[in-house]
């Protein structure tokens, strides 16, 4: 007897990615560099977030050709992004045989009120969240993995730190609340009651939680790991830097050895220029991607 794509199987792939680095790539060449550098998965994109930010316009799901090219070039899991609420892009990614779908605020949202109902799609989903309420809503819709939103394409880690701390505070609040308080708490954070109850019982999120959005250096990755995330996504930080291969390898080693400053020093030597960052205060409100998501 075999049953495909149960929620346990969806969550299970995320469990296998723990302690690893997932890298944004735009073509087969970058995907191969990522795999050889020790990435646990790649995210196939049309443009990396820093370029989406610079060029503007509507950002959509990658072209079928790009996704197919990346799938064919590597043996590790391949992820791809669908627009928030765009369930047809998700259906297409499912049919393309993608291993994980990121319903991502980095792309221009397709629905201003609703996210995708994710239970009906065989492929597991990862969703961004800025706090515990948002994480619970996404899990309620069927997300099998959560990541902090951070502020993608900035090379600035402050927002990822803010979201991670906010998530931890939220989990602690649920964990330490009396069970009589859970419904009121669920109402306050606009979260489905059963997810809140599950977090109360487990003492942690029921799915894996990665950090994303602004991680540019080995030290940034280690910082996020020490703050309690399960692994990291690195977007623009690698292929917008001076020496992508060296930096990718260094971030992978740093994510494993996040508690070992000597190893972090060793891998941080001779990395070339990091990506040029953006100060969050210099962004207009409309440019902040983390605000997308409901």
């Amino acid at each position: 007897m075999k049953i495909e794509s149960t929620f346990k199987i969806k969550k299970g792939l995320a469990e296998m990615l723990k302690g690893g680095v997932i890298m944004d790539v735009v073509n087969a060449e970058q995907a191969v560099i990522a795999e050889k550098s020790g990435a646990v998965a790649v995210m196939a994109l049309e443009r990396i977030p820093a370029d989406i930010r610079a060029e503007g316009g509507v950002a959509r799901m990658s072209s079928v050709e790009t996704i197919q090219e990346v799938i064919d070039s590597v043996s590790i899991p391949v992820m791809a992004k669908a627009r928030i609420g765009h369930f047809v892009e998700a259906q297409m990614l499912e049919s393309l045989g993608i291993d994980f779908i990121d319903e991502s605020e980095v792309l221009t949202p397709a629905d201003d009120k609703n996210h995708i109902y994710k239970h009906d799609i065989k492929t597991p989903f990862v969703n961004g969240a800025t706090d515990i309420g948002e994480a619970c809503r996404r899990i309620g819709e069927g997300a099998a993995m959560i990541r902090t939103k951070g502020e993608a394409g900035t090379g600035n880690v402050i927002e990822a730190v803010k979201h991670m701390r906010s998530m931890t505070d939220g989990i602690n609040k649920i964990k330490t609340s009396d069970q009589n308080e859970l419904m009121s708490l669920a109402k306050e954070i606009r979260a489905p009651f059963d997810v809140v109850k599950e977090i109360h019982e487990l003492g942690k999120l029921p799915v894996v939680n990665f950090a994303a959005g602004g991680i540019a250096t080995p030290a940034d990755a280690a910082l996020m790991m020490q703050l309690g995330c399960d692994g990291v996504f690195v977007g623009s930080g690698i292929f917008k830097s001076g020496d992508p291969k060296e930096r990718a390898e260094a971030i992978v080693i740093a994510t494993t050895n996040y508690n070992d400053p000597d190893k972090l020093i060793e891998v941080s030597k001779n990395l070339g220029e990091p990506m040029v960052g953006i100060n969050i205060d210099d962004l207009d409100e409309a440019e902040k991607l983390a605000k997308r998501g409901w």
Partner: peptide
């Protein structure tokens, strides 16, 4: 790939259990 991943009934040393 992931879409073909499954839970299956495994006979492990004489005992049957669903594993991922």
């Amino acid at each position: 790939r992931q879409n073909q991943s499954f839970e299956g009934l495994v006979n492990l040393l004489g005992n049957k259990e669903m594993y991922c």
